[in-house]
Amino acid sequence: MRDPDPFVPRLFRVEEARRENADTTTLGLVPSHGEIPSFLPGQFFMLYAFGVAEIPVSVSGLSGTGRLLHTIRAVGAGSRALCRLRPGDFLGARGPYGSAWPLDRAEGDDLLLIAGGLGAAPIRSALLRALAERERYGRVVFLYGARGPTELLFRPELEGWQRRPDLEVQVTVDHAPPSWRGSVGVVPERIGHARFSPAHTTAFVCGPEVMMRFTASALLAAGVSSERIFLSMERNMKCALALCGRCQFGPAFVCREGPIFRYDRIARLLFLREI
């Protein structure tokens, strides 16, 4: 009996393809055979578009729902091909890989979930999990920055979250037309206006690296401990198995030790250029 080949994807079928904005789509996937392996918020799968490419995509939904949810932005050949898929189409998927948001470790703390742009996808899975087990945490705050109002992801859901009394939601955009009723500004500025006890807060941050650096600085300035700040990192990745060597970030493989890293463990690398 041969060992399974970790490179070979499993066949999945697109059950739903939901357009989030001009270039971002959320796919709901079901396996052709068997069960979806259980996964944790923050982990990712390798999604394969037939004949085009295989790319890492974080889970944006929860385990145990009978389907895999991935939110994909069309920026390269692979992601464009995945975003073009329609219900009934097939693709390959393998995973889950990588580290997860430490939701258990954060138990009892206030939870600050901070997303920028597409970072809202991996943060969403943490938020859903926190809301499903709401009693485990103190205050739960979701800060979300995007380029403009039309680029916000999960919009119908966002409105529902904004109405919840047990969740503080702050959405801010970089630029907006005058019709926008919400905040214009950057995510780090919003931290000072959120309600949480810095000494008992765990923060999860996902967004472009520059945004995460500014956000981490603002969190430290607000009094959040560097051991309780977690970032989701990205590097070029081909195998997700720690076999291709490409996703090295200092001594770490982003696919294995990451994508979720504790801030104090990577702070030095974050400020090095071209590492």
Binding site: L118, E189, G207, M211
Partner: peptide
């Protein structure tokens, strides 16, 4: 200082398609 830093970040257009 805070607003200057915020404006820098906005200027970067970090969520844009090409950084």
């Amino acid at each position: 200082v805070q607003r200057l830093e915020a404006v820098r970040l906005q200027l970067l257009d970090v969520y844009g398609k090409s950084p």
